[in-house]
């Protein structure tokens, strides 16, 4: 399932570390960015590439929360609901997104475009409320801004 480029990238990254295992997180990151989520198959693929037992890769992968372990929509909307964002209305923002996307948090839209989840503090507290969509940060959010962003993503898709 991993593309040639992904494999090459993983190998390139892995080569830098003094010990092979250190390549686990970089490899998971590459795999997740290519596939959109992680699963057992990817763990064994990575295991072969970096020559680390698959279980160690699965153990690490399930420890970290940034990588979805099941398929998600094309855009993974991660809204921070930690304190600084919450003080500035993260909850109502989440409610608004649920309404607009017609899904509950944790769900994916039927067109497989959006998945909505909440996350812990993303280090964007002074520009709260905020969300991250795939790798990109969206800060100082308002409802209007959210409308724009979703619109833009829809047209881009």
């Amino acid at each position: 399932m991993l593309a040639e480029e992904s494999i090459a990238l993983i190998k390139e990254k892995a080569a830098k570390y003094p010990e092979r295992k250190s390549a686990i997180l970089p490899a998971l990151t590459v795999a997740y960015r290519q596939v959109g989520h992680l699963n057992d198959e990817l763990y064994s693929e990575i295991s072969e590439i970096i020559r680390v037992p698959a279980v160690e890769i699965a153990e690490a992968a399930t420890f970290y929360t940034m990588f979805p372990k099941h398929p998600v929509g094309k855009y993974l909307i991660q809204v921070c609901h930690n304190i600084s964002c919450a003080l500035l209305g993260a909850d109502s923002l989440i409610g608004y997104l649920e309404e607009k996307l017609e899904i509950k948090k944790g769900e994916t839209t039927s067109d497989n475009l959006f998945t909505l989840v909440t996350v812990e503090c993303l280090g964007s507290c002074c520009t709260a409320p905020m969300m991250q969509i795939n790798q990109d940060y969206y800060e100082n959010l308002t409802r209007e801004r959210v409308d724009e962003i979703l619109e833009e993503l829809r047209t881009r898709a």
Binding site: D40, Y43, S44, P53, A54, V55, E56, A58, E59, T62, F63
Partner: peptide, 21 residues
């Protein structure tokens, strides 16, 4: 040996066989 692992984290950490093993 690498046929057993600890997965997830915090108080829902689970011990289980390695995936597919």
């Amino acid at each position: 040996e690498f046929d057993l692992g600890a997965f997830e984290r915090g108080n829902i950490t689970e011990i289980n066989a390695a995936p597919g093993r």
